[in-house]
Write a protein that binds this DNA or RNA. Structure first.
Length: 116
DNA sequence: GGTGTGACCAGCT
DNA sequence: AAGCTGGCCACAC
C-alpha cells in the first residue's frame, strides 16, 4: 500500500498546512510538525519553507514563525524586513521581530484545519 | 553513498 | 537561571 504518492508525506503536508493558514493568522513550525505527527521534525518544516518558493510559489511562509512567535526566517525572504512587512500587511503586528499578541494570532492546524 | 547542514523544539546539566 | 546537546527528516556536495 501507500503507492508512489506516499513519498512526500511530511514535506507535502507542510505545504498544504501553510496554504491553509488564514490571513492575519500565524502558526509555528512545531505546531505543523506536531500536526504531522512528529514534533522533532520541526526543523524539516523550516527547511521546507526554504525551498517552498521553488517547490510551490505562493507559500505564505511569512505566516510561519517559531515557538516564540519570532520571525526566525525573516532573512530568507530576500529582505529581512519583508516578512514583517507582509505580516503587518495582513494585520499582524510585529514588534522587534516578534509577533504581537502571538497567542491570539496563533492558528493551530490540528484544531482549525479539521474544521475548515 | 557518507557527511554536513538546516527558517526548530525540548530536555538535561 | 541559562547554555548546550541531542533528535528529527530531507537535500546538496
Amino acid at each position: 500500500m501507500q503507492s508512489n504518492k506516499d513519498k512526500a508525506n511530511f514535506f507535502d503536508k507542510v505545504y498544504e498546512v501553510v496554504y491553509r493558514i488564514p490571513h492575519g493568522r500565524v502558526t509555528t513550525y512545531g505546531a505543523i510538525a506536531a500536526y504531522l505527527g512528529s514534533r522533532g521534525s520541526s526543523r524539516m518544516v523550516g527547511w521546507a519553507m526554504n525551498h517552498s518558493h521553488k517547490a510551490s510559489p505562493g507559500i505564505p511562509a511569512h505566516r510561519v514563525v517559531n515557538r516564540q512567535g519570532v520571525l526566525t526566517g525573516k532573512h530568507h525572504f530576500g529582505s529581512p524586513a519583508m516578512m514583517q512587512q507582509l505580516l503587518e500587511n495582513e494585520g499582524v503586528i510585529v514588534e522587534d521581530d516578534q509577533v504581537v499578541d502571538f497567542r491570539e494570532k496563533f492558528w493551530d492546524p490540528s484544531r482549525n484545519i479539521d474544521d475548515a
